[in-house]
Amino acid sequence: MLRFDEPWTLFLEILGGVPNTVSLALASLVLGFVLAVGLALMRLSPWKPVAWLAYAYVYFFRSTPLLVQIFLIYYGTGQFEGLRESWAWPFFREAYWCAMLALTLNTTAYTSEIIRGGLQAVPWGQVEAAKACGMNAILRLRRVIFPQAIRQALPGYGNEIVLMVKSTSLASTITLLEITLIARKDASSTYTLDALVIAAAIYLFINLLATRGVAWLEYRLSPELREARILKALPDPGLSHVH
Protein backbone atom coordinates (compact mmCIF):
# COMPACT_ATOMS: atom_id res chain seq x y z
CA MET A 1 0.00 0.00 0.00
CA LEU A 2 1.28 3.41 -0.84
CA ARG A 3 -0.18 6.70 0.16
CA PHE A 4 0.55 9.86 -1.70
CA ASP A 5 -1.04 12.44 0.57
CA GLU A 6 2.17 13.61 2.18
CA PRO A 7 5.12 12.48 0.08
CA TRP A 8 6.98 15.76 0.39
CA THR A 9 7.00 15.93 4.20
CA LEU A 10 8.01 12.29 4.31
CA PHE A 11 10.83 12.93 1.84
CA LEU A 12 12.15 15.84 3.92
CA GLU A 13 11.93 13.76 7.07
CA ILE A 14 13.98 10.95 5.54
CA LEU A 15 16.42 13.46 4.06
CA GLY A 16 17.19 14.34 7.68
CA GLY A 17 19.03 11.01 7.89
CA VAL A 18 21.40 11.82 5.02
CA PRO A 19 24.05 13.63 7.13
CA ASN A 20 24.45 10.61 9.42
CA THR A 21 24.55 8.18 6.50
CA VAL A 22 27.00 10.18 4.41
CA SER A 23 29.32 11.22 7.24
CA LEU A 24 29.45 7.63 8.44
CA ALA A 25 30.34 6.34 4.97
CA LEU A 26 32.87 9.08 4.30
CA ALA A 27 34.65 8.88 7.64
CA SER A 28 34.97 5.12 7.58
CA LEU A 29 36.11 5.14 3.96
CA VAL A 30 38.85 7.70 4.66
CA LEU A 31 40.01 6.09 7.90
CA GLY A 32 39.68 2.63 6.37
CA PHE A 33 41.76 3.61 3.34
CA VAL A 34 44.64 4.83 5.48
CA LEU A 35 44.57 1.69 7.61
CA ALA A 36 44.19 -0.48 4.50
CA VAL A 37 47.42 0.85 2.96
CA GLY A 38 49.24 -0.20 6.11
CA LEU A 39 47.51 -3.56 6.17
CA ALA A 40 48.29 -4.24 2.49
CA LEU A 41 51.98 -3.46 3.10
CA MET A 42 51.86 -5.78 6.12
CA ARG A 43 50.44 -8.59 3.98
CA LEU A 44 53.24 -8.13 1.47
CA SER A 45 55.84 -7.97 4.20
CA PRO A 46 58.66 -10.51 3.93
CA TRP A 47 58.41 -10.97 7.70
CA LYS A 48 56.04 -13.95 8.04
CA PRO A 49 54.31 -13.27 11.41
CA VAL A 50 53.38 -9.76 10.22
CA ALA A 51 52.00 -11.04 6.93
CA TRP A 52 50.13 -13.78 8.74
CA LEU A 53 48.57 -11.35 11.24
CA ALA A 54 47.34 -9.17 8.40
CA TYR A 55 45.94 -12.24 6.66
CA ALA A 56 44.07 -13.33 9.80
CA TYR A 57 42.57 -9.87 10.16
CA VAL A 58 41.39 -9.81 6.57
CA TYR A 59 40.07 -13.35 6.85
CA PHE A 60 38.02 -12.63 9.96
CA PHE A 61 36.42 -9.45 8.68
CA ARG A 62 35.65 -10.88 5.27
CA SER A 63 34.25 -14.16 6.55
CA THR A 64 31.78 -12.83 9.11
CA PRO A 65 28.71 -10.67 8.44
CA LEU A 66 29.08 -6.96 9.10
CA LEU A 67 25.96 -7.19 11.26
CA VAL A 68 27.79 -9.52 13.67
CA GLN A 69 30.73 -7.11 13.77
CA ILE A 70 28.44 -4.17 14.55
CA PHE A 71 26.56 -6.03 17.28
CA LEU A 72 29.79 -7.33 18.75
CA ILE A 73 31.14 -3.81 19.03
CA TYR A 74 27.90 -2.23 20.22
CA TYR A 75 25.95 -4.71 22.35
CA GLY A 76 28.97 -6.93 23.01
CA THR A 77 31.01 -4.23 24.71
CA GLY A 78 28.11 -3.38 27.01
CA GLN A 79 28.63 -6.71 28.75
CA PHE A 80 31.88 -5.70 30.45
CA GLU A 81 31.58 -3.67 33.58
CA GLY A 82 35.30 -2.88 33.48
CA LEU A 83 34.90 -1.27 30.08
CA ARG A 84 31.78 0.56 31.16
CA GLU A 85 33.76 2.24 33.91
CA SER A 86 36.84 2.99 31.82
CA TRP A 87 37.91 6.05 29.84
CA ALA A 88 36.87 4.29 26.62
CA TRP A 89 33.19 4.11 27.53
CA PRO A 90 32.18 7.58 26.26
CA PHE A 91 33.29 6.25 22.86
CA PHE A 92 31.57 2.87 23.03
CA ARG A 93 28.49 4.38 24.61
CA GLU A 94 27.58 6.12 21.36
CA ALA A 95 25.94 4.15 18.55
CA TYR A 96 27.51 6.55 16.03
CA TRP A 97 31.09 5.81 17.08
CA CYS A 98 30.42 2.09 17.36
CA ALA A 99 29.00 2.05 13.85
CA MET A 100 31.95 4.04 12.54
CA LEU A 101 34.42 1.72 14.22
CA ALA A 102 32.73 -1.39 12.81
CA LEU A 103 32.47 0.04 9.31
CA THR A 104 36.08 1.25 9.39
CA LEU A 105 37.47 -2.09 10.54
CA ASN A 106 35.35 -3.85 7.90
CA THR A 107 36.28 -1.67 4.95
CA THR A 108 39.94 -1.80 5.99
CA ALA A 109 39.90 -5.55 5.36
CA TYR A 110 38.27 -5.32 1.93
CA THR A 111 40.21 -2.24 0.82
CA SER A 112 43.55 -3.76 1.80
CA GLU A 113 42.86 -6.63 -0.60
CA ILE A 114 42.03 -4.18 -3.38
CA ILE A 115 45.21 -2.22 -2.72
CA ARG A 116 47.27 -5.38 -2.51
CA GLY A 117 45.97 -6.37 -5.93
CA GLY A 118 46.94 -2.94 -7.23
CA LEU A 119 50.42 -3.13 -5.73
CA GLN A 120 51.02 -6.56 -7.18
CA ALA A 121 49.95 -5.39 -10.61
CA VAL A 122 52.84 -2.93 -10.83
CA PRO A 123 55.42 -4.56 -13.14
CA TRP A 124 58.55 -5.52 -11.23
CA GLY A 125 60.70 -4.17 -14.01
CA GLN A 126 59.56 -0.66 -13.17
CA VAL A 127 60.62 -1.09 -9.55
CA GLU A 128 64.01 -2.29 -10.76
CA ALA A 129 64.24 0.62 -13.15
CA ALA A 130 63.44 3.03 -10.31
CA LYS A 131 66.14 1.41 -8.21
CA ALA A 132 68.57 1.72 -11.08
CA CYS A 133 67.75 5.43 -11.28
CA GLY A 134 68.83 5.67 -7.66
CA MET A 135 65.41 6.23 -6.08
CA ASN A 136 65.19 5.25 -2.42
CA ALA A 137 62.36 3.04 -1.09
CA ILE A 138 60.07 5.94 -0.08
CA LEU A 139 60.55 7.74 -3.35
CA ARG A 140 59.90 4.51 -5.25
CA LEU A 141 56.64 3.99 -3.36
CA ARG A 142 55.55 7.57 -3.84
CA ARG A 143 56.54 8.16 -7.43
CA VAL A 144 56.35 4.76 -9.06
CA ILE A 145 54.39 2.15 -7.13
CA PHE A 146 51.49 4.04 -5.50
CA PRO A 147 50.39 6.12 -8.48
CA GLN A 148 50.05 2.99 -10.59
CA ALA A 149 48.65 0.78 -7.87
CA ILE A 150 45.92 3.30 -7.09
CA ARG A 151 44.97 3.62 -10.71
CA GLN A 152 44.80 -0.14 -10.95
CA ALA A 153 42.74 -0.40 -7.77
CA LEU A 154 40.30 2.40 -8.55
CA PRO A 155 37.51 0.38 -10.25
CA GLY A 156 37.50 -2.12 -7.40
CA TYR A 157 37.56 0.70 -4.89
CA GLY A 158 34.55 2.27 -6.61
CA ASN A 159 32.62 -0.89 -5.81
CA GLU A 160 33.79 -0.71 -2.23
CA ILE A 161 32.49 2.86 -1.91
CA VAL A 162 29.03 1.77 -3.09
CA LEU A 163 29.13 -1.19 -0.71
CA MET A 164 30.01 1.09 2.19
CA VAL A 165 27.17 3.49 1.46
CA LYS A 166 24.87 0.46 1.47
CA SER A 167 26.46 -0.90 4.64
CA THR A 168 25.73 2.24 6.64
CA SER A 169 22.10 1.10 6.65
CA LEU A 170 23.08 -1.54 9.19
CA ALA A 171 23.75 1.22 11.71
CA SER A 172 19.97 1.46 11.94
CA THR A 173 20.01 -1.79 13.90
CA ILE A 174 21.94 -0.17 16.73
CA THR A 175 19.60 2.81 17.13
CA LEU A 176 21.47 5.28 14.92
CA LEU A 177 18.94 7.59 13.29
CA GLU A 178 20.05 7.47 9.65
CA ILE A 179 18.08 7.06 6.41
CA THR A 180 17.06 3.44 6.97
CA LEU A 181 15.88 3.81 10.55
CA ILE A 182 13.79 6.90 9.77
CA ALA A 183 12.18 5.05 6.86
CA ARG A 184 11.64 1.91 8.88
CA LYS A 185 9.95 3.78 11.70
CA ASP A 186 7.44 5.13 9.25
CA ALA A 187 6.93 1.80 7.49
CA SER A 188 6.29 -0.14 10.67
CA SER A 189 3.83 2.39 12.05
CA THR A 190 1.85 3.01 8.86
CA TYR A 191 2.16 -0.37 7.09
CA THR A 192 3.06 1.42 3.86
CA LEU A 193 6.05 1.21 1.57
CA ASP A 194 6.43 4.92 0.75
CA ALA A 195 9.17 5.67 3.21
CA LEU A 196 11.19 2.62 2.18
CA VAL A 197 10.84 3.45 -1.52
CA ILE A 198 11.94 7.04 -0.88
CA ALA A 199 14.89 5.78 1.18
CA ALA A 200 15.84 3.39 -1.63
CA ALA A 201 15.76 6.28 -4.11
CA ILE A 202 18.00 8.40 -1.88
CA TYR A 203 20.56 5.58 -1.58
CA LEU A 204 20.47 5.09 -5.36
CA PHE A 205 21.14 8.78 -5.84
CA ILE A 206 24.06 8.83 -3.40
CA ASN A 207 25.53 5.77 -5.08
CA LEU A 208 25.04 7.31 -8.50
CA LEU A 209 27.02 10.37 -7.38
CA ALA A 210 29.72 8.13 -5.90
CA THR A 211 30.14 6.03 -9.05
CA ARG A 212 30.19 9.17 -11.24
CA GLY A 213 32.84 10.63 -8.96
CA VAL A 214 35.01 7.53 -9.22
CA ALA A 215 34.58 7.40 -13.00
CA TRP A 216 35.69 11.04 -13.23
CA LEU A 217 38.70 10.31 -11.02
CA GLU A 218 39.59 7.30 -13.14
CA TYR A 219 39.44 9.50 -16.22
CA ARG A 220 41.62 12.17 -14.61
CA LEU A 221 44.20 9.69 -13.37
CA SER A 222 44.75 7.80 -16.59
CA PRO A 223 45.52 10.32 -19.32
CA GLU A 224 47.46 7.76 -21.34
CA LEU A 225 44.41 5.49 -21.55
CA ARG A 226 42.03 8.24 -22.51
CA GLU A 227 42.76 8.17 -26.18
CA ALA A 228 42.37 4.43 -26.38
CA ARG A 229 39.03 4.63 -24.62
CA ILE A 230 37.72 7.26 -26.95
CA LEU A 231 38.69 5.02 -29.85
CA LYS A 232 36.86 2.15 -28.24
CA ALA A 233 33.75 4.24 -27.82
CA LEU A 234 33.73 5.18 -31.50
CA PRO A 235 31.42 3.31 -33.88
CA ASP A 236 32.57 -0.17 -34.74
CA PRO A 237 34.88 0.06 -37.75
CA GLY A 238 33.78 -3.43 -38.72
CA LEU A 239 36.75 -5.30 -37.31
CA SER A 240 35.56 -6.01 -33.79
CA HIS A 241 34.58 -9.59 -34.55
CA VAL A 242 38.22 -10.39 -35.21
CA HIS A 243 39.84 -11.65 -32.04
Partner: peptide, 15 residues
Protein backbone atom coordinates in the same frame (compact mmCIF):
# COMPACT_ATOMS: atom_id res chain seq x y z
CA UNK B 1 23.25 -3.29 -6.35
CA UNK B 2 22.49 0.33 -5.49
CA UNK B 3 19.95 -0.16 -2.70
CA UNK B 4 21.02 -1.47 0.73
CA UNK B 5 20.09 -5.13 1.15
CA UNK B 6 18.33 -4.27 4.37
CA UNK B 7 15.95 -1.90 2.53
CA UNK B 8 15.28 -4.55 -0.14
CA UNK B 9 14.44 -7.03 2.61
CA UNK B 10 12.12 -4.58 4.35
CA UNK B 11 10.33 -3.77 1.09
CA UNK B 12 9.75 -7.46 0.40
CA UNK B 13 8.78 -7.99 4.03
CA UNK B 14 6.24 -5.17 4.20
CA UNK B 15 5.02 -5.44 0.60
Amino acid sequence: RGIPDLITIYIIFFG
